[in-house]
């Protein structure tokens, strides 16, 4: 869980840096983004990393489900009185629920953009590149459907934020990296990361929707 989790955390950074380009909605900005999208789908090294990424997402999900099933079996009879908030945070006990929400989001997100980029009907821009920017803008500006998509996106980012709130530092603990001096710093970094990164992601579709008017 932790190895794939840390890899997915690193993916979040790279993916965010690329997609923040969508905050420039001028024609040049969109063409820059389309050129970037072409590079990300054709450059061989990125291709290899992308397969590693698909594998990591699937492994992280399947392993998580397997472990959750084992954990459920480990306590067949539930407590009638149970006050977990006195000893742990909500996110740490609901990683499976949060992960399921995130997985549903990933399927939706990839069907909207990744699938369309590879095999869907998609126009080209003046440079001859597939016009992914137009697909993204249409998705989030398309009337009430676009509004729902923005809302789902923002809610999914909230799920990622809670998932990371526990997951970031937890990944280090699993590897045995626990130190009196460094662990508090890792935790603080994790909390900052889990708030800032999903927030920056959520700004993108909200910005695109607002730019419509």
């Amino acid at each position: 869980m932790s190895l794939t989790g840390l890899f997915l955390i690193s993916f979040l950074i790279v993916h965010l840096l690329g997609n923040l380009q969508l905050l420039d909605l001028s024609v040049e900005g969109q063409e820059k983004f389309n050129a970037y999208a072409k590079f990300m789908t054709t450059f061989p090294l990125i291709k290899i990393v992308s397969y590693l990424l698909y594998f990591s997402i699937l492994f992280h999900a399947v392993d998580g489900i397997y472990l959750a099933m084992q954990n459920r079996k480990a306590r067949p009879e539930r407590y009638r009185s149970w006050k977990p908030n006195r000893n742990s945070i909500w996110a740490s006990r609901n990683m499976g629920l949060l992960g399921t929400i995130i997985l549903v989001f990933i399927v939706l997100h990839m069907s909207q953009f990744w699938y369309v980029m590879h095999w869907g009907e998609i126009g080209t821009d003046s440079q001859g590149n597939k016009n992914l920017a137009a697909v993204v803008i249409k998705t989030y500006q398309d009337g009430s459907a676009g509004m729902i998509m923005v809302l789902l996106y923002v809610l999914s980012m909230a799920a990622i934020a809670f998932h990371l709130w526990h997951g970031f530092a937890s990944a280090f603990q699993t590897f045995g990296l626990n130190h009196k001096r460094y662990t508090p710093a890792i935790k603080k970094l994790g909390y900052a990361f889990s708030v800032i990164v999903p927030l920056l992601y959520a700004i993108i579709p909200v910005f695109i929707l607002m730019a419509k008017n």
Binding site: N71, A74, R86, S92, Q173, T174, F175, N178
Partner: peptide
């Protein structure tokens, strides 16, 4: 048939002898 550790930390909070999570990290290293 015990469950798996997901680093929730409830154990250390409830431990009457205040055994810390550093021990779990040490065992993971070992």
């Amino acid at each position: 048939g015990f469950g798996n550790c997901s680093n929730v930390g409830a154990c250390a909070e409830e431990c009457p002898k205040e055994i810390s999570l550093e021990n779990i990290a040490r065992m993971n290293r070992e």
